[in-house]
């Protein structure tokens, strides 16, 4: 294959949340093995758009550069994914970059994913272990369970699953698939299971588990391959049983 001399990028930009968005085109020199982040760094080195006008550098967010922190998530050629693990050589040009639409834009490709962290707090996605004295070791987790629970723990709160979910939108208060799957993770942990009812109660209310409509887009787009729809179905069973226990008594 003949080496491409340059890379064309069409980037949706926005100065802040309240400003209108606009598209700006960039042409940068080609190097082999570039990812989206290195292309954005190239723009930052020389912020000149395709028309040759001097402009501001495109703002994005990234931390780990190895697809574990989730901060560089954006829409690349129509698909929500991580900029750091998306290779230019595997993309069709021009490459379109847009910010995730589910979250408020801070600037350009940088969004505020605060609502996901709020949701994790709401569903109590942690294991309370603090006491006034040493509580000692907790119960052990069966190895078989640990294996699939580990898969759930890979969630990096990137937001791709919320982006693809038709029921996560301005009209709905749905917390989205990622925090639901975390409920399953923490309810599976032997110590976490001691606070199972609290987490189930949190997802049985408005915007909780039943706001899911089973389109199963989330599981298709999750970059970590987390079995989100299995988690949702398993929690559907848990909440069904919990509502029986609540009404009829356990």
């Amino acid at each position: 294959m003949e080496a491409k001399k340059s890379i064309r990028l069409l980037i949706t930009r926005q100065i802040d949340l309240h400003s209108p968005s606009y598209e700006e085109e960039f042409i940068i020199p080609y190097r082999p093995n570039m990812n989206i982040i290195s292309a954005l760094m190239e723009i930052r080195k020389n912020p000149v758009n395709a028309k040759g006008e001097k402009t501001t550098a495109v703002v994005w967010e990234s931390v780990c550069l190895e697809e574990v922190c989730g901060s560089c998530s954006m829409i690349i050629n129509g698909k929500p994914r991580q900029a750091c693990s998306t290779l230019i050589d595997k993309l069709e040009q021009p490459i379109r970059l847009e910010p995730l639409k589910t979250f408020p834009v801070i600037r350009d490709l940088m969004v505020d994913r605060e609502r996901m962290f709020e949701a994790l707090k709401k569903v109590r996605a942690w294991i309370p272990i603090d006491g006034t004295y040493d509580l000692g070791a907790g119960p052990r987790m069966p190895e078989k369970t640990r294996q699939w629970a580990y898969e759930l723990s890979k969630c990096m709160t990137c937001g791709c699953c919320l982006e693809a979910c038709p029921n996560v939108n301005q009209k709905s208060s749905f917390i989205g698939p990622a925090p639901l799957s975390q409920v399953r993770l923490f309810n599976t942990h032997p110590t976490g299971a001691m606070n199972k009812e609290e987490r189930l109660a949190a997802i049985m209310g408005t915007g909780g588990i039943t706001a899911c409509g089973n389109s199963q887009n989330c599981v298709e787009v999750c970059p970590k391959g987390i079995p989100l729809t299995t988690s949702i179905a398993a929690l559907n069973r848990e909440t069904t049983l919990q509502s029986f226990r609540n009404f009829f008594g356990s």
Partner: peptide, 17 residues
């Protein structure tokens, strides 16, 4: 309350939705 997105995500289940 749903915001259909079959134009973006062409999965079978999304069409069913």
């Amino acid at each position: 309350k749903s915001k259909n997105n079959v134009n973006r995500y062409h999965f079978f289940r999304n069409w069913s939705f």
